[in-house]
Design a protein around this nucleic acid. Sequence first.
DNA 1: GAAAATTAGGAAACCGGTTGCCTTGAGAAC
DNA 2: GTTCTCAAGGCAACCGGTTTCCTAATTTTC
Lengths: 356, 356
Amino acid sequence: MPPRKTKENAGSLGRPATISDVARLAGVSVGTASKALNGRGSLREETRRRVRSAADELGFQPNTAALSLNTGRTYTVGMITTDTIGRFSIPLMTGAEDSLGAGRMSVFLCDARDDPIREQYYLRTLLSRRVDGIIVTGRRTQARAPIGVDLPVPVVYAFISSTDPEDCSVVPDEAGGARKAVDHLLALGRRRIAHVTGPEHHHSAAVRASAAVQHLAASGIDLVGAPLFGEWSEAWGRQATGILLGAAEEFDAVFCGSDQIARGVADALRAAGRQVPDDVALVGFDNWDVMALACQPPLTSIDMELEGLGRTAADLLLAAINGEPAPGRHVSPCRLVLRESTAVSVRPGSTRAEQV
Amino acid sequence: MPPRKTKENAGSLGRPATISDVARLAGVSVGTASKALNGRGSLREETRRRVRSAADELGFQPNTAALSLNTGRTYTVGMITTDTIGRFSIPLMTGAEDSLGAGRMSVFLCDARDDPIREQYYLRTLLSRRVDGIIVTGRRTQARAPIGVDLPVPVVYAFISSTDPEDCSVVPDEAGGARKAVDHLLALGRRRIAHVTGPEHHHSAAVRASAAVQHLAASGIDLVGAPLFGEWSEAWGRQATGILLGAAEEFDAVFCGSDQIARGVADALRAAGRQVPDDVALVGFDNWDVMALACQPPLTSIDMELEGLGRTAADLLLAAINGEPAPGRHVSPCRLVLRESTAVSVRPGSTRAEQV
DNA sequence: GAAAATTAGGAAACCGGTTGCCTTGAGAAC
DNA sequence: GTTCTCAAGGCAACCGGTTTCCTAATTTTC
């Protein structure tokens, strides 16, 4: 069967066309072919045209390896997710990949699975591939140790932050997010606010809880009871609701450390005959669509804008690659997303989320 | 400040060390250095040792671009997710990355966002980078057109399949999964089984529904009513439950096209006072932990083993790269995961899922 | 002690591009 | 007709490795 001709593989040499193939077909030398394709040197227009059409015919794509040998740049970056790729990594990766792709950079994906050995293996691999930069991401309970010292390429930490304050990290303003949640509840006239969240040793839980407590205190208000630390699960949300209902103190709002917890709280409140939002207003955290939208009623939540965070991380990396590093912690704001769980008046038929 | 010495950058030349640097330091020629490091040629043991220690001292890592120029192989593959990276892509990517990493291949991540233009852009980029192979993945309602014709590198489609039957695709046996669900319900003694699932035009919904119907028919049993096609959402699950409860026909089991739907069904049944699993047994599809575990009671579900699918895809790609292509559709089995929503007797305190 | 065999390691080509420099030839100026 | 100028394009070095081939020195053999 004769080889079919296609766009990708027109001249069909059985291997990718090289610039020598192009030069031969156009009847010029390799150097001339290169100049013709890159608009360098001084060539007759007719020659340039001939070379270009030869390149088209052969489906010529310059070999990137050869290019990077010349320039020293590879136009690739590595993205290391320290924990297993999860729900939080996706928007980060998407955002970063978006910004980098716009800068014509390709992304190496490395899933280190929370294993320091794998992590160092990937680091060596990336350095050996001469990536122009590295993004380190992942969810951790705490800041992480730097991935390496005196690396020959810039590194940006996204979502997670490095323990070395001189490293470039991009993190969401979780405390600010918690304050926005509290402000929103206060604006609704709620004064008896409880807080249910994840494990106390988890940095996010601790930060969000203390920001909420302090911000309330600034308005002269105490949290209802102490923050309830537990797990990042619906079950804990249900359980914590039981605790709240059993306590002496009344409450008219619950700010939750995650949407999963908030959903558990919503289910338990409904089971106990309390109306959301009329009896109890509810705010979650993460704005995880599956949870926030499926919740009954749909959940007001704090969005960490992780996709934007990924883009910012990529932009900072590109800047560092171009010789303009921006060391230090970069904090980016969270956004409050309004839904029915804190609606003042529920208009039937309207489920559109308003945003602040 | 004098440059600090570190593992990554010991001799500190301000740039990655090359083999010339190593050769100079060891007092040999480049060729000899190369042989020493790769165990080629005939050299005195003392020379090898000297070269190796020079390489260590400089933190030498061979430039991959130079290597691939020689060998024609890059030890990289591209992974193109046609839809935006989502819940289904993650285990696929993790699995593929796992297998490929074991084969010392690095992975280029390309998120085409369901945009054919971006897809072709990525394809050209990957070919220009001379990847050794490409994995195409993503969720679609139907099989997709081949990403290119007569490409110079092997392509494997994972989860999604190509309309060209000669292309190599790896897909889960969704029909088989549906049959396992039905068999399980039959084994529990249920005979009045309903089916609630996603949009009829969605290939997965159609396949699972018709497999369920036919498999029941093979046992001489009819589905309760027709399959209820709707959306992949909890809300549809709740709504469909209302339809089932309002119909004349009784039912003692519901097989759902997704865990989200099943969860909606579970909530609606509970609200209507029906016990799961005693009155109605419930089986989901996807085994999505967030849904299946948070459901009350936890959900028996069908797992498509996407991580294994990703590994298989990677293995097939590696085989094809090594000259042993395996064209055609490869179907890999699903697995039934047992939880309380179909438990015969609920033993309090035991929530461990058993697996079949 | 001379010829042959073996060993250690160097020189150079090559992979696929880019780029600086040089050559060639045609037209212009005198 | 001779010299000068300049456009067009070829030659070769280079990037960082690998590999083939070759040379020089040492050891073995008779």
